[in-house]
């Protein structure tokens, strides 16, 4: 599988959708689609994320790789496919900002990893609070670009706590990458330094129930 992962990763970094698709099609003739997703797609995206974190790869490459994978995985595991993971009810949003890149990448990584989740788009605290309450969301992923938006997560957390709503908050975005204590200060349950961290972070905070 290691050779396949390397070839797949190379195809993603070269933006070669056709080569990536060929690798997928050849591999799923021999293994189940979910095995390909877990052992090739997720591993390749995790390595690309790590490359961004250590400065050897760029955000544009992370973004394009995520989009290519999301589309490919949708072909072999369409939304609602019974082979998709049995998972907690999740949603993702950008808080109080129109910069959506981080959310799009995390969404792609999760979809490419076989997860289903609701995309709330851009939200403000009050509407977000009502929606997650109504839809009984168990894990909320929040992406922010600017510090004031990050600080608003604290307001959301206070509302949730006051209402006795038990939900896990996973946060990410530039302010959290520049201050590794900020996620705790705003009351989040976990923080992702890169989008590809998200799958392992979800598994950790769910105590291995996925």
């Amino acid at each position: 599988m290691e050779t396949i992962v390397n070839e797949f990763m190379q195809a993603l970094l070269s933006l070669d959708r056709l080569a990536a698709k060929r690798i997928l099609e050849n591999t799923v003739k021999k293994v189940a689609p979910m095995k390909f997703v877990e052992e090739v797609v997720a591993v390749a995206l995790e390595r690309i994320g790590a490359g961004w974190q250590d400065g050897t790869l760029a955000l544009s490459q992370v973004y394009m790789a995520g989009r290519i994978c999301e589309n490919l995985v949708d072909e072999v595991l369409p939304p609602g496919d019974p082979d998709r993971k049995d998972q907690p009810k999740m949603a993702i949003c950008v808080l109080s900002d129109h910069h959506k890149l981080g959310k799009i990448i995390v969404y792609s990584v999760l979809r490419a990893g076989g997860f289903d989740l609701s995309d709330y788009g851009v939200m403000e605290v009050d509407d977000l609070f009502q929606r997650i309450q109504k839809e009984k969301i168990e894990i909320l992923l929040i992406s922010v670009l600017m510090l004031p938006s990050a600080l608003k997560i604290k307001l959301l957390k206070e509302k949730l706590t006051a209402s006795g709503i038990n939900i896990k908050l996973i946060v990410g975005g530039a302010p959290f990458r520049f201050d590794d204590r900020l996620w705790e200060a705003v009351g989040a349950d976990a923080m992702c330094k890169t989008a590809s961290d998200v799958i392992s972070v979800i598994k950790t905070i769910m105590g291995g129930k996925i």
């Binding site: 933006l15 544009s60 973004y63 394009m64 129109h98 910069h99 959506k100 890149l101 799009i104």
Partner: peptide, 15 residues
């Protein structure tokens, strides 16, 4: 262009 059209669309534009 990040502000003119958004990060994601800008990356898409380049490709």
């Amino acid at each position: 262009p990040v502000m003119q059209m958004g990060f994601d669309r800008y990356f898409d534009l380049m490709v």
